[in-house]
């Protein structure tokens, strides 16, 4: 058991080191940081609109670059091992193939945590700048000065603690995408195929819940169609589990229990994904 821990820790460290020393992480992270830094260029009319825009912009940047990072870095990491044949020296060691896949996922979840932390801290800095601007504007506005209560209301909107929950939900979503990317990597022969398929799954996953409801509630759908949609919904992820983050962005402040659906859904999905990925990876020959 101890040896297993050392093996997994080593492989996890290897992927983290790989991403930190190679360009993939920076190629994705630097544009994300630059995008965030363009935020002050956008100005809106009302305080409420400004707050919404800043929040959406920061979250949107984290979300989109997070998805790219989760998919591209995972696909690259595994396909690099296959293409550069590092996999031969790794799997020649007494390491199980599930340990290899699991460690890749674990390493990616560290990288994503790090990336979200960096972008989150940067976003907090932008929020602080915005707060400062709001106070200055409120103090400087002689005709309609904001009351202390109104100002506090705006501050509460900027520093809504539920935004951390939105980040956590985003993190779960990204980890799910890492899982699916690993699954495709186990059968793919090129990283391009893996990246493309994972992105498709991400897009189609957003339609899953509606497709499922349509299949279950509509009449007059052919049996073949029902089976087809049914099969798709069994395989595909349902991204609507992560819509809680959108509601938080719209100003909602749900309790911690609202994290349960997204966490539980991610957890169960990762379980079957790891099982299936291991099955496929074990059956794979390395020539």
């Amino acid at each position: 058991m101890r040896a297993l821990g050392f093996r997994v820790a080593t492989l996890t460290g290897l992927i983290v080191r790989e991403l930190l020393r190679q360009n993939v992480l920076y190629l994705i992270l630097i544009p994300a940081v630059l995008t965030l830094l363009t935020l002050p260029l956008f100005t809106a009319l009302t305080f409420e609109e400004q707050i919404k825009f800043t929040r959406d912009f920061c979250y949107g940047t984290m979300s989109i670059f997070g998805v790219f990072l989760a998919i591209i870095a995972t696909a690259q990491s595994i396909s690099n091992d296959l293409e550069q044949k590092t996999i031969f020296t790794i799997l020649a060691k007494p390491i199980d193939r599930w340990e290899y896949l699991f460690s890749k996922g674990l390493g990616m979840s560290w990288i994503l945590f790090l990336a979200l932390l960096i972008l989150g801290v940067l976003s907090a800095g932008l929020f602080a700048l915005q707060e400062k601007g709001l106070i200055e504007a409120a103090v400087g506005n002689a005709t309609h000065p904001l009351s202390a209560q109104e100002l506090q209301g705006l501050r509460d909107q900027i520093w809504n603690p539920a935004l951390l929950m939105a980040l956590l939900i985003l993190y779960f979503k990204l980890i799910l995408m890492v899982g699916f990317t690993i699954l495709f990597s186990t059968v793919a022969s090129s990283s391009l195929f893996t990246i493309f398929t994972s992105l498709m799954i991400y897009v189609i996953g957003h339609l899953q819940s509606t497709a499922r409801e349509w299949m279950m509630s509509s009449e007059g759908i052919s049996v073949g169609m029902k089976w087809g949609v049914g099969f798709m919904t069994v395989i595909l992820p349902d991204m609507s589990f992560y819509e809680g983050a959108d509601r938080i962005l719209m100003g909602a402040s749900p309790g911690l229990s609202s994290l349960i659906p997204s966490f539980g859904y991610t957890f169960f999905n990762l379980f079957w994904i790891l099982g299936l990925s291991t099955w496929l990876f074990e059956s794979r020959d390395f020539r």
Partner: peptide, 10 residues
């Protein structure tokens, strides 16, 4: 270090 770790060495 890496390949030793992969072999389960502490």
């Amino acid at each position: 270090e890496t390949y030793g770790g992969l072999s389960g060495l502490s």
